[in-house]
């Protein structure tokens, strides 16, 4: 499970729906893996305003990963311009301004889309229910009395 997903996932237990502490879920005994994926800057720009940055920072700390900056980057910080000649230009003289993913975007991509919880548990801060994660898949099936 990607950390991106954890920034949106809440406890599924019926009585937790109205409780603020049912989000975010807290990882327990997690085993992490980096699963490389192609960077998608447009997606990052789209999702950025919807992230709960403080909770993402908390999650990263709980997992013992390098801390995030205190505030979320602006969508404009995700790209930078680079001056270079297009590949088709053999003279190297026709320099163009290209938009490429910035280091900020690559770091965000690494945290949100490449850092995955492969096993462990996700614990609700309100009811204490633990959702098991196996092979990267979280088990959200609930016994009938909690639905």
């Amino acid at each position: 499970m990607k950390l991106l997903t954890l920034n949106f996932l809440t406890c599924a237990v019926k009585t937790c729906k109205t409780s603020a502490s049912s989000f975010p879920l807290h990882p327990r005994d997690s085993e992490l893996e980096i699963v490389e994926a192609e960077i998608n800057v447009q997606f990052l720009q789209n999702i950025l305003p919807r992230l709960m940055w403080e909770e993402l920072g908390g999650l990263v700390n709980e997992l013992g990963l390098p801390s995030l900056p205190p505030t979320a980057p602006l969508p404009s910080a995700l790209v930078e311009s680079k001056l270079q000649a297009p590949e088709s230009d053999t003279t190297g003289l026709n320099i163009e301004k290209l938009e490429v993913p910035s280091q900020v975007a690559r770091d965000l991509h690494r945290v949100l889309l490449e850092t995955c919880i492969m096993s462990g548990g996700l614990v609700c801060g309100n009811c204490g229910h633990e959702y098991k994660v196996l092979e990267g898949v979280a088990n959200f099936l609930l016994p009938a009395h909690l639905v």
Partner: peptide
């Protein structure tokens, strides 16, 4: 990302 979950829940 994959989750084991019942949409009816």
């Amino acid at each position: 990302d994959l989750m084991l979950a019942d949409a009816g829940q």
